[in-house]
Amino acid sequence: MLKFPRLLVNHVKALATPTSSSNTDCLSQQTRVIAFIITYISHYHNTFILKRRHPVPLYKKNSKPQRLKTRHFIYDLVEDTNWRRKEFLDLILTQYVAGIGNIGTRVSLHPMVAYPKLLLPKLADYATPENIEKYTKLALDQGEDKPFSSGSVEKMMKYLSKKRISIMMSKDVPWTLEKWHIKVNFRKAGIYLPEDTITIPEKSISGPNLDIEGKEFYVTITINNREQVKVRCCLRHWTSDSSSQIQVDHSLPAEPIFPEDKPILDSLPSFYKERKKNI
């Protein structure tokens, strides 16, 4: 339904009123009027699929059709196309898009996401056979010059760099920190990774040693054999004896185990949040 029909009529009349005696100007003005009407109507264009509740009777050839009765103008709504489920669009990326993929990656997205975020900014194109061949070749030519090995790597690196993993070690049994200790404690935090992707500090960390309780160090995680990210870790001692357990306030900044690692730990995103003072 058109909104404000009187305003629309007045606007069309104003556009249609000739302001020049030249035929060329009049034609161009009429063209603008037609373009305005088409744009306005198409903006409010809706499609409803209807079905007659009472079928119209047939009539013989060369005979006069019978006049339709009131019941023949009763319709049942079959479908409102405004609520029709839109099919996903098959696209191929024309360049790297954070969180999605590199050039040549094929994705299938809902039109409400695909149009504003990929097609209009020209970050993707329709996955036609010609475009698939074109951008796949460009991806092969790019080789190792891609910004990241996959679309999710950048997001994963940001996620890991903001984490602080508590490394729980025994307070009763002697130990030396190894990769499998890091792997197990990462798994406790919901992060699964193989040991060959973990790089621990070159200097050994042994215990139990209460002097390094609650202090920090960092490990390096390799993703897809290419990207590397440093993750903050905090060493804690644990014992089954509840009376000997150590209580540490982890809301306060901690000192590094190795003083030379302080610049690197300070460069990582801050894990701590300053507490608001009660007034």
Rank of each mutant, 00 (worst) to 15 (best):
Met169Val: 08
Val173Pro: 04
Ile200Asn: 05
Leu252Val: 14
Arg71Cys: 08
Arg53Met: 15
Gln30Ile: 15
Ser161Tyr: 03
Tyr115Ser: 07
Ser170Glu: 08
Lys64Trp: 00
Gly214Phe: 07
Ser152Gly: 09
Gln95Cys: 14
Lys183Phe: 03
Lys215Tyr: 01
Leu265Pro: 07
Ile257Pro: 06
Leu120Pro: 04
Pro147Ser: 12
Pro256Phe: 10
Tyr96Ser: 13
Asp241Ser: 02
Ser243Trp: 13
Phe148Ala: 00
His11Thr: 00
Asp249His: 05
Asp211Thr: 12
Ser242Lys: 03
Ile37Asn: 09
Phe48Glu: 01
Arg67Ala: 15
Phe48Cys: 12
Lys273Trp: 03
Ala124Thr: 07
Leu138Ile: 12
Thr24Tyr: 15
Glu274Cys: 07
Arg52Trp: 06
Gly190Asn: 13
Ser149Arg: 00
Ala35Tyr: 01
Pro129Leu: 05
Val9Asn: 08
Thr94Tyr: 06
Ile182Glu: 08
Pro263Ala: 02
Asp241Gln: 02
Ala127Gly: 11
Ile212Pro: 11
Gly151Val: 09
Ile100Trp: 02
Gln247Lys: 13
Val33Leu: 05
Trp83Asp: 10
Ile264Val: 04
Cys234Asp: 04
Gly104Glu: 12
Leu177Glu: 10
Lys60Pro: 11
Pro208Glu: 10
Tyr40Asp: 04
Leu8Tyr: 10
Arg67Met: 14
Ile92Cys: 03
Lys171His: 01
Gly99Phe: 06
Glu79Ser: 05
Ser149Glu: 07
Pro201Tyr: 02
Leu210Ser: 11
Leu8Thr: 11
Trp180Ala: 04
Leu68Thr: 04
Leu58Phe: 07
Ile37Leu: 14
Thr220Met: 02
Met157Tyr: 01
Gly99Ala: 00
Tyr192Arg: 15
Lys158Leu: 02
Val33Lys: 03
Pro55Tyr: 03
